[in-house]
Amino acid sequence: MSLYYVQKFLFELNRDAEMQARYATDRQAAIEPFELTEEEQAALVEPDIGKLFHLGVNGQILMHFAALHQIEWQDYLQRMRDGIAEHGPVREGVYAMTGYEGTDAHAKALGQETP
């Protein structure tokens, strides 16, 4: 696991037009300089939004990445839900650190319906 470098790649991609151009041309080459596992590389190249959320990518970083790929908002949210359903709870990062239990558990704790 190298969540730090997954997020660092996305941080640099999200704010740099030249890097976005390189990524658009050759995604695999764009991520080459970063120390990533094969699982992480595959998620970034596809891109697999659900897997990236499961790996622990901060939503504020992931949201901008999804926007870069023109992923519609409701589709973006659903991809994250599907990622949790398919792969399990968030592995690490801010959501795991503070106890991410999923949308149903959060809604129940607040006495609300799942959005």
């Binding site: 504020q60 949210l77 994250m80 839900r81 999923g102 809604a107 607040l110």
Partner: peptide, 8 residues
């Protein structure tokens, strides 16, 4: 924000 709970 930007999580599956967005909207809550």
């Amino acid at each position: 924000p930007a999580t599956p709970d967005s909207g809550k």
